[in-house]
Design a binder for these strands. Structure first.
Lengths: 355, 355
DNA sequence: CTCGCTTGGTAACGCGCGTTACCAACTCCG
DNA sequence: CGGAGTTGGTAACGCGCGTTACCAAGCGAG
């Protein structure tokens, strides 16, 4: 094999500089090298040899072998995250948040796919296999993240290592979890509408059984009751969680009343439905927010930030949940007690131009 | 520490079953265990002891230690991907495609963040650090992926290992890359419009210097000239690559002509601009696709699939590029020659309802 | 019987590193 | 001057596994 270093071909060999090479180059023992590289407190290495070793590291371009280190030290500095987000990237910011936090903690995040989404799908095995693979890598903790807030059942194997659920909770109630504060989000949304002077507020609801719908609606009810109002059941309509569903629901609610009785604001329980509601409103010659204010939920950037007018909405704190997941895991692996079995994370209001 | 196996706490210990344990349990040597587990051809292990060993593996719940294996065998089965996609997840399907393919090849994908996006950003160091970390894990190959098609400069260190660029190309022209066939995409889009009978086609252009704009426009020109038509420069307007930009551009193009001279179709060079164009069209009381057909580019699901009517668009083959990246890497690490320095991947037309 | 060959294994080394035990040479103090 | 403590290191083991020697028993052929 030629010595050429043609980039991008297998001819480029790993340099393979080991601690032994460094030691020889610096004229010391391998142990000494290990000591200075790991910055041991009670090392007792003279300043002079210390710099000599560091120089050798530089000159040879030594790079520690993480695998060997993990083997010897019995800790890998890895967390694993298994998630269907890889497959359905709606909540990809969870990964981002986790990744960033892990990076800060000088840890690596091993990302493995799952497909729990379709319950007992065709390749249910994938998830178990993924966890198995992660454990083979000797991850020190496991994150389990879902694309939408719901109860899940985590495979048994996950119990071998500290595990934290993100954007979902353990149906068996044994594992700690981190979920959005849907109720608080619903409350803040309706408070915003009330503050803008709206009293008659229509709600475009999701499938009423999912945790998101339950929580957000409850929050809405709370906000209204604090203002001395009640949620008129007639003003709550459900639909498919799509733009079409939102369009249909908005049409129903808008056409049901004469203009003066019409709600002056719509709280759409997700942004996709808000997108459909926009069409229904514009189609009727009404303006946003002039005639009807709209507030969404989820803060799907691609929708909320590009609708015209831009959609005021409540954000799902994906990134924060991811980061908190890693922090919680760090606490667990360090043997610290967890703060709470289920941590709620705020859903902040994002003001744009539709209210 | 109590023996309780409270899940999710540090009390749960790694089981730590090693090959030695398996060997003892099966009454054989560790070597024998290693042989059957790695399915050696010329093993010469009797069928009987083979099953005895397998049983022991089952009973003890033995799980190989990937790190130790990597250390001994001098191969990690890992690829690294460094990408700003973690930060700006527009092209997250690249990761998905790569991950799936890697999974098929029984390899792991180590995902590390980058922020090349902002040229010489505040933490330019992040990228180098990320690559460094990946090399410490002894990845066998490197993928480098961008959120949008452009030239990049990859840090030197990446040369120590086979490297493939995805959705970007090496500004120095040394590394193999995989990019979308923008020109083919532009052609197929305009062909679709021509086929629907449109002759007067407006183009809403991106920033004219980026590769995507150049390629797509060239493709459009090709399609027209094949049909004996020419691209009227007056019908090409540029704008910011946002919904607002698309709205403005569409307004300009629509208001410039009397109805009979107006283009009957708009080719928007990305979906966000198409989203804005929708508004401009509807605002003028025109229907899609009745009065004006619209075709987009990128296939951003959240936009294209939820616009009303659903947007016909050309898809960027993110997933395929990711998969192809891993395949190319596999070929490189196996010492096979690469197929081509720059591989183009088809951008397929996605028919929906706006043409 | 003996030589050579197959079958069914095992002992032992090394991968790169963390860590513990130990050791020689210098102080310092009485 | 002798012993205790400090400074500046080193030898050697083990982490879990792949792999290469090597070896004993059985067996057929000459």
């Amino acid at each position: 094999m030629a010595k050429s270093t043609t980039p991008g071909t297998a001819a480029v060999r790993q340099r393979g500089v080991t601690m032994k090479d460094v030691a020889k180059h610096a004229g010391v023992s391998r142990t000494a090298v290990s000591f200075v590289l790991s910055n041991r407190e009670n090392a007792s290495i003279s300043e002079e040899t210390r710099t000599r070793i560091n120089d050798a590291v530089q000159e040879l371009g030594y790079r520690p072998n993480a695998g060997a280190r993990a083997l010897a030290s019995q800790r890998s500095d890895w967390y694993g995250i298994v998630t269907e987000i890889v497959t359905a990237p709606f909540a990809v910011d969870i990964i981002k948040g986790a990744q960033d936090q892990a990076w800060l903690d000088r840890r690596f995040l091993l990302i493995a796919p799952s497909d729990q989404a379709d319950a007992v799908g065709p390749n249910q095995g994938l998830e178990d296999a993924a966890i198995e693979k992660l454990l083979e890598q000797r991850v020190e903790g496991l994150l389990y993240a879902a694309t939408f807030h719901r109860g899940v059942r985590v495979p048994e194997t996950a119990n071998e290592v500290p595990t934290v659920l993100i954007n979902c909770f353990d149906a068996d109630g044994k594992l700690p979890s981190i979920v959005p504060d849907e109720r608080g989000g619903g409350r803040v949304a309706v408070e915003r509408l009330l503050q803008a002077g709206h009293q008659r507020i229509g709600v475009i609801n999701l499938d009423p059984v999912i945790p998101a719908a339950v929580g957000r609606l409850e929050g809405a009810r709370e906000a209204l009751s604090t203002a001395g109002l009640e949620l008129d059941p007639e003003l709550v309509v459900s639909g498919y969680a799509t733009a079409d569903g939102g369009y249909d629901a908005a049409c129903r609610i808008l056409d049901r009343y004469p203009p003066k009785d019409r709600p002056t604001a719509l709280f759409c329980l997700n942004d996709r439905m808000a997108m459909g509601a926009y069409d229904a409103i514009k189609e009727r010659g009404l303006t946003i927010p002039g005639d009807i204010a709209v507030i969404g939920f989820d803060n799907q950037e691609l929708i909320a930030a590009y609708l015209r007018p831009k959609l005021t909405t409540v954000a799902l704190p994906f990134e924060k949940m991811g980061a908190l997941g890693v922090q919680t895991l760090a606490a667990l692996t360090a043997g610290q007690p967890i703060l709470a079995d289920q941590q709620l994370v705020d859903c902040p209001l994002l003001e744009r131009s539709s209210v």
